[in-house]
Computed example of a mutant assay.
Amino acid sequence: MVYYRPLRNTILQIQRYIRNGRDLGEYVHYDFSYQGPLSACLILQSFGKEALDPDNPYINSVTQGRFVTFGAPHILDMVAMVGRAALEAFWFHKFLVHRRLRPEEFGGRLQNHMTGDACYPINSELLDSQVVSEVFKEYGTYLLPMAYPEGCPTHPAYPAGHACIAGAGVTVLKAFFNESFPIHNPVVTSSDGLSLLPYSGPTLTIGGELNKLATNISLGRDFAGVHWRSDGIEGIKLGEAVAISILQDYAKTYNENFKGFSLTKFDGTNIKIK
């Protein structure tokens, strides 16, 4: 749940379930690094062994249970581990490779361009769009309106850290859980965000909802105005690659009769790691 911020620098002290882009942007304003994947992991653990990946070596055992390996401590540790590794990966790309400016900074260039204080090669698609005049009409400036009072982080934009960590954590969860497992009795947020309602629609699966989780965490930062969409799209892919490399290393170390990790990548490709 989040505290809803309806106006600039104003917070209503009413807890609401996330229901729109503004609420989502506020969630990824205050979450800790891998909170989304961690929360998902705890929820998935509550579904029981039927939700585990079919290749879990303990799933059919009547004499042994999963714990140190292939159990809750193992999965929770992996989610945290790949999150930290993803952090190192995107930090490297941010500072040592791309150094892409933030949308807020680009808004400053647009402001100077429109007022004649500078001349930048800004694409006419933006200059001729209605959004430029609408922003000026509302705020008296061409600067980018921001959801966060402190504005963008001061480090480079590409790739998005939230997206990278989410992509890594979700990839691990796909490896340990059955992506096709149907989620029973799902709920959705009411329009005012104050209650949860029964969901009616196509069957929701673990794999589908994990994909939504990674995407929504990425999009929340876009809604806030601190990232370009491509920051998130490529950040998710980078996090996935980090997690797959770690799963490849660990798949060779288990003493159990383990057939390997199976998962579906974000691009729809099915892979086997063993």
Rank of each mutant, 00 (worst) to 15 (best):
L210F: 04
P156T: 05
S218E: 14
G71Y: 04
G151F: 12
G232K: 03
S129W: 10
R100M: 12
M146Y: 01
N216L: 02
A224F: 00
G25P: 00
D267I: 09
Y142C: 15
S180I: 15
K94C: 06
H113L: 03
L12Q: 06
A40D: 05
Q130Y: 13
A163M: 04
G71H: 03
L76C: 06
F32P: 08
L263K: 05
S180C: 10
D55K: 09
G169N: 10
G71M: 02
P149W: 12
S218Y: 06
H162S: 05
H184W: 11
K49W: 12
S39K: 03
H227L: 04
T215Q: 04
Y139H: 07
W91D: 02
Y34S: 12
E234T: 07
D192A: 09
K94I: 06
M1H: 04
E104Q: 12
D267W: 03
D231Q: 09
R66D: 04
V172R: 05
N60G: 01
A72N: 02
A51E: 14
L24A: 11
P182F: 14
W91Y: 06
K272Q: 14
L194R: 13
R16C: 00
S33N: 07
F32V: 08
Q130P: 14
K265D: 10
M81D: 06
V62F: 01
L197Y: 01
L76K: 04
N56Q: 11
G65R: 03
T171M: 14
D55C: 14
E88D: 08
L127M: 12
Y30C: 03
R8T: 08
L197M: 10
I233V: 14
T69N: 09
H113M: 04
A86F: 10
H162C: 09
A214W: 00
T141D: 07
R99P: 01
